[in-house]
Design a binder for these strands. Sequence first.
RNA 1: ACGCCCGUAGCUCAGUAGGAUAGAGCGGCGGUUUCCUAAACCGCAGGUCACAGGUUCGAAUCCUGUCGGGCGUACCA
Length: 586
Amino acid sequence: MAAPCRRQGRPGAGAMNLQQELTQRLARAIAAAFPDASDAEPMVTAAQNPQFGDYQANCAMGLSKRLKSNPRAIAQSIVAALDAGDLIDEPTIAGPGFINMRLRPEFLERQAAAVGADERLGLPVAETPRTVVVDFSSPNTCKPMHIGHVRSMVIGDAICRLLRLLGHRVVADNHLGDWGTQFGLLIVGFRMFGHEVPERDDPLLRLVEIYKRAHAAAEADETVRDQARAELARLHAGDQENYRQWQQYCRWSMEHFNQIYRRMDVHFDETLGESFYNDLLPGVVDELAAAGLARPSEGAMCVFWDDDSLPPLLVRKKDGAFLYATTDLATLKYRRDRWHPDEIVYLTDARQQLHFRQIFSVAERWGVAEGMRLRHVWFGTILGPDGTPLKTRSGDLVELADVLDEAERRAVEVVREKTPDLDDAEAGEIARAVGLGAIKYADLSQNRQSDFVFDWDKMLSMQGNTAPYLQYAYARIRSIFRKGAESGCRPGETGVSVAEPAERALALKLLQWPEAVAAAGDDYRMNLICNYLYELSSVFTSFYESCPVLKSEPAQRDSRLQLCDLTSRVLKTGLDVLGIQVLERM
RNA sequence: ACGCCCGUAGCUCAGUAGGAUAGAGCGGCGGUUUCCUAAACCGCAGGUCACAGGUUCGAAUCCUGUCGGGCGUACCA
């Protein structure tokens, strides 16, 4: 299937954030009309209600107190000083002093054409590219991926994609938990039960079975616990055999993880376990002590805050062992030296907020956070219908591989029902993209800070505000181009027209893509991208219902084909940011 | 006990510069297919935004208090 021919334009030629542009125009008008209040925020937002126009400025009411004047009169003066006739009609003043603005159709038409010719779809490139390390996924080894791992993975990967789209350098860093206390028990368990637990396709699942038995044995028998402690100590002391065992477990774990990452289409630039930082830990504690941050307390080493703004942070146990916090500080310093990042982003669930406030504060006082922005991007917990963490009937966490299987199974059913004429290979491919998309979108479309109530039907839903809805909109557009190509229809040069309300609404929404990206990038809120794409698809579908494309007159057809083409490109780009595939057919 | 987060339609959730009549999906009810994919579209019903005060021209949003829920608070990660 040939892509619709695209006019070659200078990349970035159509770059414009409408909200920003109008904000700047309004700011100039305020400065001109009220020099004393030239610092006032114009407060331009997309109009709440289409009857008020496309954008509104809400600054006049706020200025009224400061200037001791009637807000409507203030709005009037701002409008009089406003130079934006190239973008909007004469603004109207409504209610207490809202400035309502409506974009001119000629502007929409010109801008839509410009964006259509722009590879970046109107999205400005970051003027100062930053280097951002994104720490996400970071599962513990020797445990299968379960449903609780999905958020960090999906949101983290999407944030990486978003930052790259904005023109930043990204280091996607998978910080494996490969140095826990479970290894002693695993080593003992392997010796006790290794010969009687059968091999499996996924060696990690065998390891988990062994661990379960070892755990039960330790519960029942004190000496097993002692052995586990001894093996762990031996591992930490550098025992060759135990080290080899440990490496084997880590390899099996990675095989399992990589299988999941491949299915999920999630990628990393760097994968280093906690074990990698082991040698650095004593030095970290020494430095903290030398800097006067850490001091002995009850036999341990601990960082205190003189003003008690934060509770004490333990960096070395009284038995000499180091902790999670120590590793995180060592990792932070290592990343600074290795990547010289402008920012490090950590994705974890909400429960680690205090931990990261402590880590960031220590890093600052220690001096290793100089010139770096440290951000804890946290998300809510995945809960079952009863409000507690999700479990299967046997009490285990739901395995991610099973969720992916179930999603595909459901998607196959829908594909078979809706599009029976597909061959098995294509149906399977569509089902994979649709099932995986549904899972990712269910997670990304929700405010990340809310707890996530897991519900098979909701998570794997293919109807309403879901990824399949967006994929379907895309597939319908591609279908138009397939059909159009048969009779030689291609989007051409005639220009875009927005005479019909549905055309106008679609063009406007398309021009707002940069706003959605900017808003999402501000605070890593991927749900804003989802909202936008859903609205775009929704506006498109209305357009699709009311505006025939291929059956319209040539000039109109050409314009509509351009709108379709642009819609499909924004959808593809947007879904790509979410890590969701588009489909030519579904 | 202290700290953080939360309480919005029957259900799941948007609403993070304080702005006009609080939105969406699902579920419910009713319509739409000689036409580019009906995984769709159009319409209707459904709300004391937990409660009580306060701030202001204006509060789901900010402040205080109460009730209810989740999580966290030095030898786990």
